[in-house]
Nucleic acid binder design. Structure first.
Length: 434
DNA sequence: TCTGGGGTCCTAGGACCC
DNA sequence: TCTGGGGTCCTAGGACCC
């Protein structure tokens, strides 16, 4: 196994991952739930998207629909929450801030995970360092984390998985040399390797490849041929050759999407227009938050794929905007025009969405305007109106100021088990009585 | 009755051009 | 029967991630 170097110094990567993150967030404010089975549900309270250890032990899989497991959930008195993303987002920044104070070079990889480059910690005991990280985050935020350390990001991921799954590790696993790495990979099923999903697992197992070590020992040419560049990269990473650098600056988004399942059948074009208008406006708002402009709009709508009786239809179309924009009114109008084209009478629509692509950071002044581009309000006026819109909604709550076509509830149907926004809403702040 | 939402990257294949 | 070759751009779909 080769180790990677940075400025001639051997470097190691850490992956810090929150345990059962959404469930842990709920538990911080309801300590009585520790040791009890808890799940967090998707929008519309449809699927299970986070499970406590106790629920995993019951054999309930990730993404399981609630209605299929009603009995199991009831007999085991599983506590259920609607998703509270305002709370999870805020708890995530607390965790990341604490981590950033401990380790200078981090990459926030997802809401509940971060990588760290440990090149400055060569003389430290990495196991002790990892324990300090685990304990400090727990103390400062209440969130339990696991820490995995290895010579590459993929090995850090693998180490983290073992730290979580095998209780002997107590949430900390360091693959400090070739011997410990080999031993770890032997105990890691190949489908747990980062970026080896269902499809590749099926093909690898057919070849008798069952563990990460089996995979790491395959010939590079074979892996390149069968699993393309992505597979080849993972393969090299598992063998200790770092191919994935730490990305401390988040690259700009390439697409922005807002979509929902309706939670009921939508038949009328007017209702669908209301939904698409709402989603398009939300996309435009996300776009402005990122400081980007969109060049393409896609609208899709489809009936229920699980419903074997009903007639299936899936409509989707992409259109180029006449000029790049971040204006809600432009984006909503174009989305509604696309909807007119794809809408078919007589279907029971179950889900729809809007996607913005062709994103650019350039403001319209820097972009050649379309020869037949829509004249009218200047870009300056448009930008000023959007700033005013965002300012009002920021201050008085999203949806205070909106287009007539938008729904006031954002097409959220059932959210019956929502916890309070303890950390982001004054009215919901927790009171401590002494 | 009731099955999430938001992303990225890669490849193959068609359209089109010279 | 036999039907150029190479390049680019775009899109759809697959695979994967959290």
């Amino acid at each position: 196994m080769k180790n990677t170097t940075r400025n001639g110094v051997v470097t190691m990567f850490a992956l810090i991952d929150c345990n059962n993150f959404y469930v842990s967030c709920e538990r911080v404010f309801k300590p009585a739930l520790h040791g009890k089975p808890v799940v967090v549900l998707s929008n519309n309270d449809g699927c299970i998207i986070a499970r406590s250890q106790e629920v995993k032990a019951l054999g309930l899989p990730m993404g399981a629909p609630v209605f299929k497991h009603k009995e199991l959930l009831e007999t085991n008195h599983v506590v259920m929450f609607s998703p509270n993303f305002a709370l999870y987002g805020d708890m995530s920044s607390r965790v990341m801030n604490t981590l950033g104070d401990l380790l200078p070079d981090i990459e926030i990889y997802s809401i509940d995970e971060a990588f760290a480059d440990l090149h400055g910690f060569g003389r430290f005991d990495l196991h002790e360092l990892a324990e300090t990280v685990r304990d400090t985050i727990r103390r400062h935020t209440g969130i339990p984390v696991s820490v995995g350390i290895g010579a590459t990001k993929t090995l850090a991921k693998a180490a983290n998985h073992l730290a979580k799954k095998q209780s002997g590790y107590q949430g900390v696993c360091v693959l400090k040399d070739a011997a410990s790495t080999c031993k770890a990979l032997q105990s890691l099923p190949v489908d747990e390797v980062w970026s080896i999903g269902r499809a590749y697992t099926r093909r690898l197992e057919a070849q008798g490849i069952h563990t990460a070590l089996d995979f790491a020992r395959l010939r590079p040419e074979w892996v390149r041929r069968q699993m393309h560049v992505t597979g080849a990269r993972v393969h090299r990473e598992l063998r200790g050759q770092s191919c994935l650098p730490l990305e401390q600056v988040r690259p700009p988004k390439k697409s922005i999407c807002t979509s929902r399942s309706f939670g009921r059948k939508v038949l009328q074009v007017g209702e669908l227009e209301n939904a698409i208008g709402t989603f398009a406006a939300k996309c435009a708002w996300k776009l402005r938050k990122e400081g980007l402009y969109a060049g393409l709009v896609t609208v899709f709508a489809h009936t229920d794929a699980f419903d074997k009786q009903g007639r299936y239809y899936r409509g989707s179309r992409t259109a180029a905007l006449p000029f790049v924009t971040q204006n809600t009114i432009d984006i909503v109008n174009h989305a509604l025009a696309i909807l007119k084209v794809i809408f078919r009478e007589g279907y029971a629509y179950q889900k729809a969405g809007v996607i913005l692509d062709g994103l650019t950071a350039a403001s319209p002044q820097c972009v050649t305007p379309s020869l037949f581009g829509e004249a009218g309000s200047s870009h300056d006026d448009s930008a000023a109106i959007m700033r005013a819109l965002d300012a009002v909604n920021e201050r008085y709550g999203s949806g205070t100021l909106r287009l007539a076509i938008e729904s006031s509830t954002g097409w959220k149907q059932r959210m019956e088990r929502l916890s309070p926004r303890y950390t982001t809403r004054w009215a919901d702040i927790i009171e401590v009585r002494g």
